[in-house]
């Protein structure tokens, strides 16, 4: 049995004994748990205070990221193959539908929970000093969450996604000054915001690849980086907000 104990200790560095020191140690030496301080305010962790909204948003992000990775194995960002590969995921890939459902529903929950978390933070005035800038980061995280959902919408290449994205990107065409159809426009239809977004004048292959890149690389990367900053700043601001 010694070898098992040695293996356990080498990974978790703690035993199973319980004492105040062990409790602190367990949090401090654990990579995941050290997001938290070893001891936290009793009022700050009340369920009726936070409703776990921020933590659950992170959880839904992790679920979408992992399931999204598995979907990437079978998905081709090619207008001729995209829809067929979606059908494959739904009908041929073992547990493909399940994986896609998890990805979709976790994304929906994330889009619900991030604004709710924002509401909670506002109602408890947790954006006040010294947490002002963390609120700003949070607003950006909200924006990124929406953008991630929006870019993912095009990938199945079905009627719903095509026309929803047509409507969404045509708004970019109507941007004042920078859109070809907007007020005071200075750019032509092959120079404006809409063109950069689509990589052409209509939704096509370049659009699909651009959205694929944004959805799978650029936006999740930005989101993960900003999230790390968000959590770090919570710690630096003295942990979770609570009555002064």
């Amino acid at each position: 049995m010694n070898i098992i104990v040695q293996m356990w200790r080498s990974i978790f560095r703690t035993g199973v004994a319980d004492s105040p020191v062990h409790r602190v140690f367990r949090v401090v030496v654990n990579f995941l748990l050290h997001l938290h301080p070893a001891r936290v305010s009793k009022d700050g962790i009340k369920l009726r205070y936070t409703f776990c909204l921020g933590g659950l948003s992170l959880f839904f992000f992790i679920v979408t990221a992992v399931t999204g990775g598995f979907l990437m194995i079978y998905y081709y960002p090619d207008v001729d193959k995209a829809y067929a590969s979606m059908k494959d995921i739904d009908e041929i890939v073992p547990f493909g539908t399940f994986m896609r459902n998890l990805h979709r529903w976790a994304a929906h929950l994330m889009v619900i929970f991030v604004p709710l978390h924002m509401l909670r933070v506002f109602l408890t005035a947790a954006y006040k000093p010294p947490r002002e800038f963390n609120w700003v980061i949070g607003v950006n995280l909200l924006l990124l969450t929406f953008l991630l959902s929006f870019t993912g919408y095009l990938l199945p290449w079905d009627q719903l996604s095509y026309w929803a994205v047509t409507v969404g990107t045509t708004m970019a065409e109507n941007t004042p000054i920078l859109g070809a159809q907007g007020p005071f426009s200075v750019l032509g239809p092959e120079e404006d915001m809409h063109f950069i977004l689509l990589g052409g004048t209509t939704i096509g292959q370049p659009t699909l690849v651009r959205f694929y890149f944004a959805h799978c690389v650029a936006l999740p990367g930005a989101l993960a980086g900003l999230m790390a900053l968000h959590f770090w700043r919570i710690r630096k601001a003295g942990g979770i907000s609570r009555p002064l």
């Binding site: 409790r23 949090v27 301080p37 070893a38 936290v40 305010s41 009022d43 962790i45 933590g55």
Partner: peptide
Amino acid sequence: YPKEEKVDTWPYLVRKELIAI
């Protein structure tokens, strides 16, 4: 926060997070 009551993260916070997840 001069005189606030603190509790151990393990297990009081960790178990709540675990249940939520």
